[in-house]
Amino acid sequence: MSSPLLEKIITESGQPVNLCYQCRKCSAGCPMVDEFDFPPNMVMRMIQLGLEGELLRSRAIWMCVSCETCGTRCPNQIRIAPVMDVLRAECLKQGIEPADPTTVALHTSFIESIRQFGRVHEATMLLKYKFKSKKFTDDLDVGLKLFLKGKIPIMPKKSRNLSKIKEIFTKAGF
């Protein structure tokens, strides 16, 4: 595989994507496959073929929940979850509009919370997510119940060494 993206995938994910021979065991066991526009085996093939644009615009890369079922069963020991991580990062890096902005909104809100406190503060994180995803009404009942059950604390807890946390973010390019 010689396109820049594909070499990047093999080096960064450490996964031998070139070995995939299309047995489709990954797709057969994937819990999310119905939500994918390209099943995991196809994603492997698209990487081999260098179909970069299509891949980075795909919904598949955002729908993978990293359950690692496929990677556990792959006869060529390709873990697809880390491959998906590299693809997602590349999508964002190239400024491509993610096919599932909601997921990105959640993850961005989540890591912003970590950057701020060193830990996640659910209340502010969820609020931020609602603003970003504009899904204000979804799961309001669930949120309220959680709050009433004492599962969403109002005050955030913080890590001690926040400057080190910020440094980790900076080093990762955030």
Partner: peptide
């Protein structure tokens, strides 16, 4: 064509 995935492709 890539018959492994059943897709038409342009290289």
């Amino acid at each position: 064509a890539d018959t492994l995935t059943g897709r038409q492709i342009t290289m």
